[in-house]
Design a protein around this nucleic acid. Structure first.
Length: 107
DNA sequence: GGCATGACTCCCA
DNA sequence: CTGGGAGCCATGC
């Protein structure tokens, strides 16, 4: 596993319950602010292998963009279950945004 | 190495 | 508010 991917993984796992982070934010903490898409990919490919809290990850505006899955619970449901208020598919970042105490900054 | 792929982000009309 | 376009980059074939 590439260092970047591993860092992203660690950061995602460090997100406290009831808090959220944006893709770009995670990418930034992992040392590459431009790699939001890779963060996405990590979630996509590893979410089933490692029960990742993917629902705590939203886009830069705190909005839920994932297409809804009728069978499974929506991201919104999962978040609300953790005490996060979701308004029109959007989350008040000023209240729930989270920033890890540790970062990888650069290399 | 090249080429396609994204659950992104930013900017502007 | 919506929509379009460009930039970005790790990963897999």
């Amino acid at each position: 596993m590439q260092p970047f991917t591993e860092r992203v993984l660690k950061i995602i796992l460090s997100i406290p319950k009831g808090r959220v982070m944006s893709y770009g934010q995670i990418a930034g903490c992992a040392g590459n602010p431009r790699a939001a898409r890779q963060v996405v990919r990590v979630l996509y490919t590893l979410s089933d292998k490692y029960s990742l809290p993917w629902h705590r990850v939203v886009n830069a505006k705190g909005e839920i963009v994932i297409k809804e899955d009728n069978n499974k619970k929506t991201q919104r449901d999962l978040l609300e279950a953790e005490g996060v208020t979701v308004i029109n598919n959007r989350i008040p970042l000023q209240k729930y945004n989270y920033y890890p105490t540790f970062t990888f900054e650069e290399y």
